[in-house]
């Protein structure tokens, strides 16, 4: 198969044979589908969980007000270097497509990216790199702002997996809150390697 390394030549065969030789009694995998938990107000639940993990949430009622509302956010006002890949929003002053080496993103203060959908159960947003030239931008930016459309909110992870179309994109991730660590004395420090803040904005 794919390997060309000497150490590997017989290992595949011998490992798989050893496993097969155990002849364990077959056991059936549990069924796939599960209803999961449901919420009367999905965005309210999402907001509650997101704020409990240190993220901020904002909902904008009318389409025309989105840009004006975002412009007034402290995180937007105070950021000098911004990248934005959300259509119709013009907050970016750094064009990610013009940057060849992701290492040059070190000065990025704020990244505004589209989120595919939100999950109420755990306050997570699913993000793919569809519109993002550099995956690292999601982690290198000092602050991250995700824009999700209001209809795009599911109750739980089971529904989330049903929405994920795999086989198309090679990369995606759930983001739930700002980056954090508790490695020093079991105490929480917000802003480990990734963004120091996360804002999720739901728009019509």
């Amino acid at each position: 198969m794919s390997a060309s390394l000497p150490a590997d030549k017989n290992a595949r065969q011998s490992i798989l044979e050893r496993i097969r030789s155990r002849e364990l009694p077959p056991r059936e995998l549990p069924p796939l589908f599960d209803e999961g938990i449901r919420y009367a107000d999905r965005w309210a639940q999402f907001q509650e969980v997101l704020s409990s993990v240190g993220g901020q949430f904002l909902s904008v009622a009318d389409r025309d007000g989105v840009a004006a509302t975002l412009a007034k956010l402290p995180v937007v006002e105070s950021s000098r270097c911004r990248a934005c890949t959300v259509p119709d929003l013009h907050f970016g002053n750094l064009d990610l497509n013009a940057v060849d080496d992701p290492r040059d993103l070190a000065g990025l203060d704020l990244a505004i990216f589209p989120g595919q959908f939100a999950v109420s159960e755990n306050g997570a947003v699913w993000v793919t790199d569809e519109s993002i030239r550099h995956r690292a931008a999601l982690f290198i930016a000092q602050h991250l702002l995700l824009v999700v459309r209001q209809p795009d909110c599911v109750d739980n992870m089971h529904q989330a997996y049903q929405r994920l179309a795999f086989g198309e994109r090679g990369y995606g991730l759930f983001i739930s809150g700002p980056s954090k660590t508790a490695d020093i004395e079991q105490s929480l420090v917000i802003g480990a390697h990734g963004p120091r803040s996360l804002t999720v904005v739901a728009v019509p």
Binding site: V53, F174, S176, G194
Partner: peptide, 13 residues
């Protein structure tokens, strides 16, 4: 936590 902050799903290069 309900979910860790980052759950990355990586499929190939």
């Amino acid at each position: 936590q309900k979910l860790s902050v980052y759950t990355s799903i990586i499929t190939g290069p």
